[in-house]
Structures are given as C-alpha cells and as structure tokens.
C-alpha cells in the first residue's frame, strides 16, 4: 500500500515537473492557467480510456475521432430542440450507434479492426457532414457549455475513469479483454470466445466515445464536420496517452490513472509550447521527442541498472 502511494506520487511528479518547467519558461503560464490545461487534457484522457479498451484486446482503431465527432453532431442536432437532455441523449445515441456498427462489422466480416476503422471514418465523416448541412458546422446554446466547464468536466472524466477501473480490474469482461489481448488461442482453450470479447470491447468503447463527444461539443460550443479523414488527427494524442500509461504500468497497475497522467503531461507540453510561441510543427516534433525520450530512457536505465547490479555481484 505504502509502495503504491509512493508510486502515485512519483508518477504525478512527471506532469508536476513539466508544469514547473513551463511556468519558468513561458510567460502567462502559471497556477492561474492550470484549470485551462486540466480542462484541455480531459478530452484526450476520455478518448484514451476508450481506446484502451480496444488496444487492451490487441486491436487498433483509428476511428475514435470520427465516432466522437459523429456522436457530437447527433448530440448537437438533438440539442436544437431537446436542450441539455437532447444533447446528452444524442451523444450517447450517436456514440453507441457507431460503436455497435463497428463491432458488428468486425465480428461478422472478420476484417482487421484497423481496416474497418478506416471504412468507418470515411462513412461517418461524410454522414456527419451531410447532417450539419451546407454550413459545415453546428452550434449549441451557450447554456449547454457548462457540461465541459471546469471542474464539472474533471468530475465527468473522474467518474468515467472510475468506471473504466471497475470495468478493467473488477469485472469478468475486463479480465477477458486483457486475456484476449494476451493470447487468443489460449483464450479458446479456457472457454473464452475471443470474437465475442472483442465485440464487447468495441461496444464498450462507445460509452467513452459518447462522453468524449459531450465534452468536445460543450468545450468549443460548436462542431465543424470533418472530411477527408481529418478526424484521424484526434486519435493520436489519446493513443500517446495509452502508450505512456502502458509504459508507466510497471510502477502502478491502474491504467485509468496512468492514462490521465499521460494525457495531462502531453497537454502541458502542447500548451507550454503555445505559450512560448512555437509553431504547431515544432510542438509536434517536441512531443514526438518527449515520447521517444520517456520510452527510450527506460531501456537505457534498465541496461545501466543491470550493469551496476552485475558489477556489485
């Protein structure tokens, strides 16, 4: 227990140190900007929680951005007449609908998930664009923005993370998703149906997709339909959150918390560079270097420690 608390402190140290560095380097970056940074990390964290469900089952899905946008569009449309209730219902309806479509296609067509996800992107981006009409974007009423306001957005993500924790660590389906990601053949030998488990993983991802859609449309107050696979760019930050989370798992086996730490760290870097006036290209380069440095340092430190241990022996 003590060890776990110490590990949480150590892991939270990464975003804290990063934040501290940018407070020193960037003008306008300080404690007052913390709620903004935290708020901005909520959408990638929520999407990361969803992506983790499928990545844990050894699937790769690039369509989460398209699905989130489609759900947000449905939510936005229903909000026109239904207000907040319509917005929430629409996001959940859209998120589930697309996720179930993807799960069904995956299960019955037996095509790799990545291929299906590319098809889903193309179809649902166009569908979303048709729905919003010729203007290409959709607004929601300002009184609906509160859902993504600080600290309610943090509460929503915390609730989703708690749900993800229970799902992954305290339910049978969570155990099976991990098992399928480990070895499908072995799963069959212990009576687990891998195809059904993957179907469930993709469907469950819909919950996080819906919540991400809700945060997304409420955060910006409007949504612009994406075309030509532009929604794919939304997936890369959440994927990095999951990769960082997986890397940190050896210190603490609690993926939802680790995904949040990953999401927060990445957002701090992006915002820090914006505050320093760097271009988007430079931001991307630095983020890539950060990811490689974190993962690479582990290998270097591992080799250093084994050499040190051998020398001691």
């Amino acid at each position: 227990m003590k060890k776990n608390v110490w590990n949480v402190i150590r892991l939270l140290g990464m975003p804290v140190i990063l934040y501290g560095i940018f407070c020193l380097l960037a003008k306008g970056f300080g404690l007052h900007s913390l709620p903004v940074v935290i708020s901005q990390s909520m959408i990638p964290t929520m999407m990361g929680l969803g992506l983790y469900q499928v990545m844990n089952a050894d699937l790769m899905d690039l369509s989460m951005g398209a699905r989130t946008m489609f759900a947000a569009i449905i939510g936005g449309l229903l909000a026109q007449n239904g207000g907040v209730a319509g917005l929430i219902a629409g996001c959940f309806l859209g998120g589930f609908l697309v996720s179930v479509v993807m799960a069904v296609l995956y299960r019955y067509l037996r095509i790799p998930a990545m291929v299906i996800s590319l098809g889903i992107i193309l179809i649902f981006e166009v569908a979303g664009a048709k729905m919003v009409g010729s203007s290409g974007y959709l607004r929601i009423a300002p009184e609906e923005y509160f859902i993504a306001s600080y600290p309610l957005n943090v509460v929503i993500v915390a609730a989703a993370a708690a749900f993800a924790y229970f799902l992954n660590y305290r339910t049978r389906i969570g155990t099976y998703i991990t098992a399928v990601g480990n070895d499908e053949k072995m799963c069959k030998n212990v009576g687990i149906n891998p195809e059904r488990v993957k179907f469930q993983a993709i469907t469950l991802m819909g919950i996080f997709c819906s919540l991400a859609a809700l945060l997304y449309i409420c955060y910006s107050g409007s949504i612009t339909a994406a075309t030509e696979m532009a929604s794919m760019s939304m997936v890369f930050r959440p994927i990095m959150c999951v990769i960082l989370g997986r890397y940190m798992r050896k210190y603490l086996d609690c993926m939802p918390l680790l995904i949040f730490i990953g999401g927060l760290s990445i957002t701090i870097i992006f915002n820090g560079f914006i505050a320093m006036g760097f271009s988007e290209a430079i931001q991307d380069i630095v983020l890539g270097v950060f990811l490689i440095a974190i993962l690479g340092s582990d290998a270097v430190m591992g080799s250093f420690h084994s050499k040190k241990a051998a020398a001691k022996a």
Binding site: T175, T178, A179, G181, N182, D183, M186, N189, V190
Partner: peptide
C-alpha cells in the same frame, strides 16, 4: 497442455 496456457498480463 504442453504449451504455455497462462496469461502474462493477468
């Protein structure tokens, strides 16, 4: 079984 039949991540 002769082969490994345990799940590493569990």
């Amino acid at each position: 079984l002769q082969e490994k039949a345990t799940f590493d991540q569990l």
